[in-house]
């Protein structure tokens, strides 16, 4: 699954197509993003010092969508960026070295800001742990919050999301796949069983959320 180039497009699916069913359709995703935007405004009492950082790949697109909604609501530009966590992963030594994705920190930085990390699926929590480490090397935000499209459970670290699009109880053998228009030509969240029969330890399969 290692990609040769950053920001690579649609992932080769290891989701068994026969078992896959959509748990969120495009309209659901649209509604959920809008709701999360409102929640952020409510919790932050405005969006003045909010910085959205998407975790590549699909977290970046979600962060951009969230930023648009926040701008609609607040009529103010919301800084949005990307935070690649590859170099901070705790499972680097379990797989071949992988290509880096782009990290883009908005020009004003993150010091004293409210950073909202955005990812598509929250699973083991290890990605977010790595993201917190990465943030630490970039600056000192006022606070860090987490927004995810889907929380599928099975946490391995004491991490929880502040904004959740949909709580989705799953079994370890199942796989959640988020499709976004920017990469996949359609919006959907699919749930199904793995294409490959052998269960893989979740820590070693960060892409398989």
């Amino acid at each position: 699954m290692t990609k040769a180039s950053p920001n690579s497009g649609s992932r080769p699916s290891d989701l068994d197509p026969a078992s896959a069913r959509a748990v969120l359709e495009a309209s659901d995703i649209d509604r959920v993003v809008t709701r999360i935007a409102h929640e952020i405004v409510e919790r932050a009492k405005g969006a003045r010092d909010v910085v959205l950082l998407g975790i590549p790949t699909r977290g970046v697109a979600l962060a951009r969508r969230l930023a648009e909604r926040l701008e609609d609501i607040e009529d103010e530009k919301v800084p949005v960026g990307a935070l690649d966590i590859t170099m901070y992963r705790d499972d680097l030594r379990l797989r071949p070295a992988r290509a880096l994705e782009r990290t883009e920190i908005p020009a004003d930085g993150i010091d004293g800001k409210l950073v909202v990390l955005v990812d598509d699926v929250l699973f083991s929590g290890r990605t977010i742990r790595a993201a917190l480490d990465a943030l630490n090397d970039i600056g000192r935000p006022r606070a860090v919050q987490l927004a995810v499209l889907v929380d599928r459970g099975h946490r391995e670290l004491p991490i929880r999301a502040d904004y959740v699009g949909k709580n989705l109880p799953t079994s370890q053998r199942e796989k959640v796949q988020v499709l976004l228009n920017e990469y996949d030509g359609r919006d959907a969240v699919l749930l199904g069983t793995r294409g490959d029969a052998a269960p893989v330890p979740p820590a070693a399969t960060p892409e398989a959320k």
């Binding site: 290692t2 170099m87 680097l92 030594r93 379990l94 797989r95 071949p96 070295a97 992988r98 290509a99």
Partner: peptide, 8 residues
């Protein structure tokens, strides 16, 4: 060196 083996 970053992974279990060189990048694929």
């Amino acid at each position: 060196l970053g992974g279990s083996e060189p990048a694929v």
